[in-house]
């Protein structure tokens, strides 16, 4: 499983913060730093907003996803059509650092009166760095009372999670959170 692979990258270990740190497999550590550095650059180029979404769409083939696999932007377009998501209204509650990528708890709140005439129709959650970026496509109704969902996701690596909400009038909003996924775990 892809999640397991990331776990096993951590065969080398070291003690941090001890007088005589035991260091094994320095290369792995350096490679990881390189990867993290690349991620930072990625993240900088990741700006929310309609134009940036389009730009990212063009960049997608350069990423780690194979050309045949669909990017999260493609799935979003299928879900909400041509609506251009604006920033705001969507609150994504995710741990800054996930203890394990297999079970990352999250909560989503979308600001809406949830009345018969004005409610959140759907919420779409994407793990931008997973081999399959879709997590859930949820539907709400005025019976929901609040547009709120709490669940658990799998994250293959450190990445951004994007949440897109579409309102009953067709307008779309988005929010995101960056999650660092702990790798190399013996579990403590």
């Amino acid at each position: 499983m892809y999640l397991r692979q990331t776990c096993q990258q951590g065969a080398g270990m070291f003690y941090a913060g001890t007088a005589n740190p035991i260091r094994i497999s320095r290369e792995t550590e350096e490679q990881m730093t390189d990867k993290l550095h690349l991620k930072v650059v990625d993240r900088r180029s990741f700006v929310l907003g309609a134009s940036a979404v389009a730009a990212l769409g063009a960049l997608a083939p350069l990423g780690s996803t194979p050309a045949s696999a669909k990017a999260w932007q493609d799935f979003m377009k299928e879900a909400i059509g041509d609506a251009k998501p604006a920033e705001g209204k969507v609150k994504v509650d995710l741990p800054e650092i996930a203890e394990n990528g297999n079970t990352v708890p999250y909560k989503i709140h979308v600001d809406s009166p949830m009345s018969e005439s004005d409610y959140v129709k759907s919420v779409h959650v994407y793990a931008t760095g997973n081999p399959g970026p879709q997590i859930i496509d949820a539907q709400f109704t005025p019976l929901s009372g609040k547009a709120y969902v709490k669940s658990r996701m799998r994250l293959a690596k450190t990445q951004d999670v994007v949440v897109v909400a579409q309102m009953s009038d067709g307008k779309a909003y988005m929010g995101k959170a960056t999650v660092k996924v702990t790798i190399g775990g013996c579990g403590g």
């Binding site: 879709q134 859930i136 539907q139 109704t141 019976l143 929901s144 609040k146 669940s151 996701m153």
Partner: peptide, 26 residues
């Protein structure tokens, strides 16, 4: 609830094992 939709979701493989969902209901 009494046949009317409250909440629904399509789940993909990135949903954790033992799927858990909490949501609100008026």
């Amino acid at each position: 609830f009494n046949g009317k939709l409250v909440f629904s979701a399509s789940l993909h493989p990135s949903v954790s094992a033992n799927p858990y969902f909490a949501f609100d209901f008026k």
